[in-house]
Each structure stands twice: as C-alpha cells, then as structure tokens.
Amino acid sequence: MDEELLRQAGRLIQFGLQPRLHPGQDREYKELLSRFRLDLEFDETVRAIAEGLGLEVAATSDLGFFLAAQPGSVFAYTLGTFRRERGTAASVDDRLLHGLAMVAIVAYFYPNARDIEHAEIHPATARDVDRFLRGVCEDLKRKQKDPDVLIDQPEFEQAWHLYLRHPEAVETTDRRRAQRGALSIFDRCLTLLDERGLVRAQKDGQDVAYVPMERMRVMVGSVAGHYAYETLARHRRDQQETELK
C-alpha cells in the first residue's frame, strides 16, 4: 500500500474542496493536478477515494480540479440549505424562484452551446438577468392562450407564471432593494455564486456586474447540464407516454 500516493490523493481532493483556490496560486495544487492528468494510477486512486467520500471528479483542466458532490453526500449543498442558512422560512415557492434564478443566470451567461465551448466571458448584473428572464416569460405569456391557473389546481401553475407574479423590486424608503423582490433574489444568487468561485464581481456600486468563471462553465458543461438535459428528456418521454394512452 503506497501511503504517499494515498496521502497525495487526499491532498488533491482537499484542494478541490476549496472553490476559490486556483492552481496558479498554489504550487502543490498545480503539481498534483498535473499528476492526476498524466498518471493513470494516481487518477484512479483519487477517483476511488473521492467516490468513497461521495464526490465525483466533474472535470479537470489547467484552471482547476472540479469536484461535484453526489446527491445525498455530506458534501452536497442543497437549495433548501441555502435558503435556510440565509434567512427566510424556505417555502417551496421561495426555493423554486431561487432555483429558477440560478438557471436563468447560467442561461444568460451561456445562452448557446458555442458560449460554453468557447468559454465566452460577458458580464451580467442582477438587473440584466431579471430583464432577460422577464422577457422570456412575457414571451411565453403572449403565446399561451389560457394562462390563468384553475383555482383548484394550483400545482399546474407553470414556472414562468409564478415568476411574473412575483414583484420585480420592492422599493423601501431608503431606496435599498427590499428582501422580497425579484432583483433581490438575483442579488442573493449572484452573491452566493461569487462566494463559491462560480462568478466574480467586477464593478462596485449598486449594480454589481459579475462574470462567469471557469468553474461555472465546467459545472454546467458536465454534471449540472447533463442532469438538466436528461431530466427534461425523461419528462418529455413520460408526457408523450401519458398522451398516447
């Protein structure tokens, strides 16, 4: 049993758990990352230990060693936890709105496949994304003939409808954004993304602009994107099956 190998594998995993650390900032990190990419035995050891911890290697590049927690893992950070940690009693609607905001932020940064491929970097403010999402939702509203939900069937309300119902910004007397409005939802999501090294704040002031980091591109292009794609495909199949019956 090569203890040194195991120890180094553990070190690399530790580095991977620090989302705001970059290989260029730490020599050991850079070396271990390089070893992972070139040494098959090391690669397998790391992956095995990671799997034991409930982690998987999402991707690796010069810009980082990117880990993802498997669902149910102690390392998983859920939407529910996010909402509980940051204040309100997390209702289903509250979680849905924040989750939707996250998808919208990612879609704003990488609308097309090409943007992910080419690692395009364009800034976004909370206002930009809200405007974008609102536009898409308004579009859907126009296309739908009967948008209002039946009173006794609230579960059929579609996500876009829920979003449009939510006030955009609630002005407080001192002109800060109140806690409830859509813009504050985006503020919170972007702040979280910044803390986790998925975006970075570029400008100061009320309307902070954020740019996507490689971490976001990688997580979207690997685990998160795949999951969304497959879940939606499955849903479509299920729907088609029920329709055929």
Binding site: L17, P19, A68, Y77, G99, L232
Partner: peptide, 18 residues
C-alpha cells in the same frame, strides 16, 4: 420545475464549503 431546479442547483454548486 422545483425538483429540476433543486437538482440543477446542487450540481452547479458542486461541493459544500467547509
């Protein structure tokens, strides 16, 4: 939609910050 966005969120975040 809620389930999907929750799953997306978790996978986007990757790991819990120690």
């Amino acid at each position: 939609a809620a389930d999907l966005t929750a799953g997306f969120f978790e996978r986007l975040m990757g790991v819990r910050l120690p």
